[in-house]
Design a protein around this nucleic acid. Sequence first.
RNA 1: UCCCCGGUAGCUCAACAGGCAGAGCGGCUGGCUGUUAACCAGUAGGCUGGAGGUUCGAAUCCUCCCCGGGGAGCCA
Length: 440
Amino acid sequence: MTARNGDGSTPIVYVEELSGHVGEGVVIRGWVAGTRSSGKIKFLIVRDGTGLVQGVVTPSADKETFRLAEELPLEAAVKVKGTVSADDRAPGGVELAVEHVTPVHIPNEEYPIAPKEHGVGFLMQRRHLWIRGQKQMPLLRLRDGALWAMRAFFKERRFIATEAPILVSTSVEGTTTLFTVDYFGRPAYLSQSGQLYLEATCAALGKAYWIGPVFRAEKSKTRRHLTEFWMLEAEMAYLEHEENLQLQEDLVRHVVEYVTQEHRRELEVLGRDPQVLMDEVEGPFARVSYADAVEIVRSAGVEMEYGQDLGAPAEDALSEHFRRPVFVERFPVSIKPFYMKRCADEPGVALCADLIAPEGYGEIIGGSQRVDDQQELEKQLREAGLAEEPYQWYVDLRRWGSVPHSGFGLGVERTVAWLSGIHHLRETIPFPRMIDRLDP
RNA sequence: UCCCCGGUAGCUCAACAGGCAGAGCGGCUGGCUGUUAACCAGUAGGCUGGAGGUUCGAAUCCUCCCCGGGGAGCCA
């Protein structure tokens, strides 16, 4: 269905569709992203959320339009009627010979974000406007593509999309700092993970996943942390460790393939070479045990003791060493949560793996096979120093029809950062929440 | 929570060793029929984050506070 303009004759189209309308009259509805003038010829850059197009205004347009073209400030809202023409000089290959501009809203004040350099603090305070930027826009579109690819992957594999609660009464991992809220007079917490609930759900549905926000009250202050971020968590009954890794690998490869095929334009604007991503997921992902990883990290000159978790410098050393996604398996149980099953051949290590992204983007997946034996689970709860009472429902899952099962959680923002080549997580989500950033 | 760096025009920054507070961009005015962060000419724009202190004199040195950035730990 093609929308029609007020006069009933001119089709309203989006910038991304313009190449299919060369030679035709169209109306673009959008915002002014820039103006230039060279006397009797004026240029109007218009964006509409799907892309940017240059409108060319000459004296052949009506008088009012010709005058407006010079005066329109940044971010004026306009409807632009014109004829689409192919032009090699235009970025994107097409431009618009403007016949008429209808102003929808003309700002009275100067737009605070000039098309010039700005500091991050300045831009973050104006995040609600910054997202209109020519790099932010494709980044958010890329995020959409990545999430879409994840959902399509699971749909195709017959996983059921489900939900986990955000308000919870207990911690999943015991160690992480939680946000507390008042829940009718008693404390509740914002969930840091939906995993325990996914374990329950997968015993009902067989294969389940969810994509939702999770919260960490850690006072992290780095480019790899947000206090509110989105996690994709999947859990599958009868899935064992090896198959779990294969599932994760298939998922990540699918997302990369989808994004490099369907979002080439966005990647190009972001300066991200799709070939780099494709090369990284070509062939099986690397695998290394935690113990061997420690040796690799040390030989790269990074200080690390066996028993310490992988810090950022350690992760960077590993991604530099393997230059492709790498699963780090068999972590010491002391640095992993209580619900992980232990390796049969070595009870001191967990049947788990973290997936480290290439190029220093850090851990994008953490997963494991879960404890399926009731006594074992109760023992590990005690060893973790957690109260058993709040976890009774979780223990129940081992009481009736307990089966081997595994799952994982993927950090959406870290994945998008890797895909897009963006350095800092804050740009991969529309309105990031960080230790010192609650507005806008 | 800890460590490091910073706060000067709307923005990005300069101002030697304590001595008249500047530039580019943006804005505004004018010029230009193919500009790509256009270009050319002109113009306005400042309580140097706040409070104390040292000094003849502080954007500059000292103390405290506030705000921003980078990193660590923790994690996705």
